[in-house]
Amino acid sequence: MSSRQRVQQWATFARQWHIFDCKWQNPYESAIAIVKHLKGLHKPIYHPMNDCGDHVICINTKEIALPGNEWTKRAYFHHTGYPGGASWTLAWELHSKDPVMIMKKAIYRRLGNNLQRRYTMQRLHLFPDDNVPKELIENVTSQIRQLRVVPQRIDHIEKDVIDNYPKIMDYPTDYLPKTLK
């Protein structure tokens, strides 16, 4: 075995570390991309019995985005086991209590119900902001591409850019700006 093949062997069977920025991402859409890397489905050597899954670090889970009115319409069910112990928590309530939970539940659901699910979840590292411990971040070698374009707030765009942007509307000559209070 040549030295090149030896390194290729290590690289094939070593666990890779990926990072994913959840800013303005839909948790249910991004779960598909994350689960692919967690299970190792993107590798040519993949087999369900072959333990080839990777680690994924998800940062900024506090800034995930949901479409339309899903923050108030999506409910998370929990039952304590006692009579009358059922509870439904809305997505925005759950997210204000734990900014990691929605992302975690989305990925957990996406993994499917099998015995490997708990072990695969141990390879997932979720952080509400971008403060990742140094011993984790130094392992990272690749980044999972974001699925949605992060929109830019107008007050974060520089004034020069706003002023010199091509205009498609000009005020009529008889326009009087409303006196604002």
Binding site: W24, P67, G68, W92, R153
Partner: peptide, 19 residues
């Protein structure tokens, strides 16, 4: 600021133009 708004309004939301 947008992230200081009331209840669910403080979280990021996107919309579909075809709605």
């Amino acid at each position: 600021l947008p992230n200081q708004r009331y209840k669910h309004k403080k979280f990021n939301t996107y919309f579909f133009e075809n709605t």
